[in-house]
């Protein structure tokens, strides 16, 4: 899936404080294999999700999405399930970092988080930083410049490769 251009898909909507145990229960953390993570993604919160999720669907949640543990298995599970991006009013810090690092787009948009519902159609333009929903347009909170550099590199792995090869050594803006 490309981050360029406009993407259209369906919404799965959840509330506040969706924790990482809800995203992928700890009992499955004996592996980080995509197929297993996908099979158990959100299973305790919403068993219908793994049955019906389609590649390109999007998750919308309210506050503090991804709170709890530091397991990177959580954004990996969402990515493995085919989720194109997660939109929330706010994210827990570790989840937000992990998602950026592994290349799962995460967008902060409190206004949309209040009004979206499961099954809605949503249009997203990641590069442009906007969302279309029920005839209205929303702008997402821009990433700090430094995070944009990680995203532009394609995630933390290629970013570190660049750094190790003698690339930049300072955070943008500092």
């Amino acid at each position: 899936m490309s981050i360029h251009g406009t993407h259209r898909g369906r919404v799965w909507k959840y509330g506040s404080n969706v924790d990482t145990d809800a995203i992928v229960p700890a009992r499955y953390l004996t592996t980080h294999e995509a197929a297993t993570l996908r099979r158990h993604c959100l299973e305790d919160l919403d068993p219908a999700f793994r049955e019906n999720v389609q590649p390109g669907d999007m998750l919308v949640a309210v506050d503090n999405f991804g709170c709890g543990s530091s397991r990177e298995h959580a954004p990996l599970a969402l990515k493995a399930a085919g989720i194109y991006c997660v939109v929330a009013a706010s994210f827990a810090r570790i989840f937000f970092r992990n998602a950026i690092n592994i290349g799962l787009p995460v967008l902060e948009c409190p206004q949309l988080a209040q009004v979206a519902a499961t099954g809605d159609e949503l249009e997203v333009n990641l590069a442009g930083g906007w969302l279309h929903h029920r005839g209205l347009s929303y702008n997402v909170t821009p990433y700090p410049e430094f995070m944009q550099a990680i995203i532009a590199a394609g995630g933390l792995v290629p970013y570190v490769r660049q750094r190790m090869a003698g690339g930049g050594n300072s955070c943008a803006g500092s």
Partner: peptide
């Protein structure tokens, strides 16, 4: 931090 962040710290 997550695993990828940690790997970055191990590397650099």
């Amino acid at each position: 931090v997550g695993s990828t962040d940690l790997a970055g710290a191990w590397a650099t």
